[in-house]
Nucleic acid binder design. Structure first.
Lengths: 250, 250
DNA sequence: CAGTGGTCTAGACCACGGA
DNA sequence: CCGTGGTCTAGACCACTGA
């Protein structure tokens, strides 16, 4: 087909398609509803499947759609607000904040984490894995790095592997006096292990929240939490107020 | 080089390719260096150009690469940390925080913003456009919505269009007593106008920071700031400390 | 102008989920 | 088993940049 006609400004097809689909979603579809499959949609709009997919990818990135292999494409609910900054500025694991300890091992982390911790290479570091569940949905996977030097009260193997050991590390952490913390957010893509926890494919877009916890002695712990970017809106409400309803800026 | 051989677990080609490229970037390339062009790289790795592009897209999303049409693909510098949460929790435009007022118009915003403002539809709202420049690079574009009712001291046309008018709105805002604020971060894609300000293509991934400013009377203003997700790391340091060096989690 | 990345096509096969 | 989305190919043309 002769692609387009006379477009003074040749807007890409997938971009226009995305707009059309977005309006159709608002107008004709309810949350959870299944869209026609990709081949069908592509035929209906007269484009190649790859082009249609480019539009769907954008909409998924914006949290409008959810696609699952073997199942289909559904209309996504509005993003859930996930509190990140409020909750008392305390140690991780202090309250019932939705985090669940999964496991803990003693390992030597990679260079980037080492730089954040400010410890020398080769020193043992407790690595705690936690997941966060909100409204029955896994929204985040975290790796919490605690240098063994930060929690001298914790003997090497005083708890068996698994959740119990993870909780032991968190418990020891809370005995320290928290001096302050430091947080940053950036875009990343899910590593294979995080993707599995989040029920996504590797490479899925995630919001990486890096937190450093300080005591008088220095950096006592570093947390790297990866949140599903498609379904989450991170909230930093100091006032604790909730944004009731919103939609990502196109 | 015939890339790889038989993989018992058929890891996607683009994923493996991304890993190989990522290691090559760390090892053999300096920041700012130009990579071979896409056709050349695809041939060298024995894959179709589309597959090679899928790997490059991931690396660009992670801030490792920068691609510009007509120019080429270069190795990106580490992401710049951009302070978002600290700086006194004050009104926008209070200090020399890198924001530059561009323009202001009186308009009636779309539904999502209206819901955030909590005002009735049809009421006039000052819409201020600002951009943020850090280290000579445009990192964010903002739309600040101020209901006319919030700044009664500002008569309709007491300043000509343009930056002067924008600054007038900001000045009026600072006469109010700020009661608190509320912030959220989510992933979005750049609208055409924002993309132009940020020197990116439409649809580029952005971090959307939505801030509500409260006075005793209610929501006095709402800011929607879109940050380039590829080059920015948003920092919320209450302590004002700086993360010196980091690399997104894979 | 030549060379780059951006868009688009029309196929093909594969991995996964559910019936 | 079938239907879904996920991956991959080998082309083509276009829009933009810089010399």
């Amino acid at each position: 087909m002769g692609t387009t006609q006379l477009e003074s400004v040749p807007e890409p097809k997938y971009w226009h398609l995305k707009t059309v689909l977005s309006e159709a979603l608002d107008r004709d579809f309810a949350v959870g509803e299944i869209l026609p499959n990709e081949r069908e949609l592509a035929a209906r709009f007269g484009v190649a499947r790859a082009t249609l997919r480019q539009a769907l990818e954008q909409l998924e990135l914006e949290g409008r759609l959810q696609r699952r292999r073997g199942v289909g494409t559904t209309v996504a609910p509005p993003r859930v607000g996930v509190a990140v900054g409020s909750t008392g500025h305390g140690w991780p694991g202090e309250a019932a904040d939705g985090w669940e300890a999964v496991d803990a091992v003693e390992a030597v982390p990679a260079g980037a984490v080492l730089a954040l911790l400010g410890t020398e290479a080769g020193r043992p570091v407790h690595t705690v894995r936690r997941t966060r569940v909100t409204q029955g949905q896994a929204v985040a996977a975290e790796l919490l790095y605690v240098p063994a030097a930060s929690v001298p009260g914790l003997s090497a193997i005083d708890a068996p592997a698994g959740p119990a050991r993870a909780r032991a590390v968190l418990r020891e952490l809370q005995r320290l006096a928290l001096d302050g913390q430091d947080r940053s957010v950036e875009l990343g893509s899910a590593r294979a292990d995080d993707a599995k926890e989040l029920d996504r494919l590797p490479g899925a877009p995630v919001l990486v929240v890096t937190t450093r916890y300080f005591t008088a002695e220095g950096t006592a712990a570093v947390s790297v939490a990866t949140y599903r970017a498609d379904t989450c809106r991170l909230t930093f409400g100091d006032t604790g107020m909730e944004i009731t309803e919103t939609r990502a800026a196109s």
